[in-house]
Design a protein around this nucleic acid. Sequence first.
DNA 1: GTATCATTTAGAGTATACTGTAAGTCAATA
DNA 2: TATTGACTTACAGTATACTCTAAATGATAC
Lengths: 121, 121
Amino acid sequence: MTIGEFSKKTGMSTYTLRYYENKKLIVVLRDDKGRRVYTEKDIEWVQFIKRLKETGMKLSEIQKYALLRYEGEKTMSERLELLEKHYHFVVEQQKKWDMYLQNLKQKIIWYEKEIQKNKTP
Amino acid sequence: MTIGEFSKKTGMSTYTLRYYENKKLIVVLRDDKGRRVYTEKDIEWVQFIKRLKETGMKLSEIQKYALLRYEGEKTMSERLELLEKHYHFVVEQQKKWDMYLQNLKQKIIWYEKEIQKNKTP
DNA sequence: GTATCATTTAGAGTATACTGTAAGTCAATA
DNA sequence: TATTGACTTACAGTATACTCTAAATGATAC
């Protein structure tokens, strides 16, 4: 699959895909003309990168994981460690967001009451 | 309270505080010498800004809210609308993160199994 | 009274993550 | 065969949110 097709399937711009390759986040095969050839496996991998990114992992951190991944089996426990660290980060983040959501709810309720008050003075 | 004291209490750098003021996120009183004077109310407000920011609201959006806030009571329903919008955003974000967390958990379990396999071949 | 510290301003610099341009090659379609 | 479109590279530009510097003033401490 070409970079254009891959771009459509993953929803990432070709700019970003080349940028990620440059950053060693994705290793891409080339055809005999030197053009990028993406596989189905790359889709999974890019979706995973997107999830990590969306949950607040920096590209530099994702890069670490990617490098280990392309080093092969012997880096599995290191990768596990990175993922566990991120898992805990996300869990903590969720807790914080839960609190903020409560706070926001209170504020919304306060506003609703105030507005109601002003409607019927 | 001076900007230095306020900075310590809120954990925001004086740079950031001036930056926020510049962006019209905070309106600050001045003393007869032209120096910023922060109040306890400003602490609450800055903490609220921090929560909005941490839950992914952009400064430009927070700015909108701030401007309405400083316009007074008549903008309450507009502010309520902004907060409700953000509330839904955070809820949706939480849902997504929950999914990603499940995915991450599966991956972690997979790694644990693989590593166990290699330990006892 | 002078040294030190906090404050002021405008504006420049940094980090992150893209996003786009320029100049050129290559291959398929009208 | 000419043009359209996708691709290549290197590198410049953008957006966001700070972060810092420089130069000056003002206030407190010894």
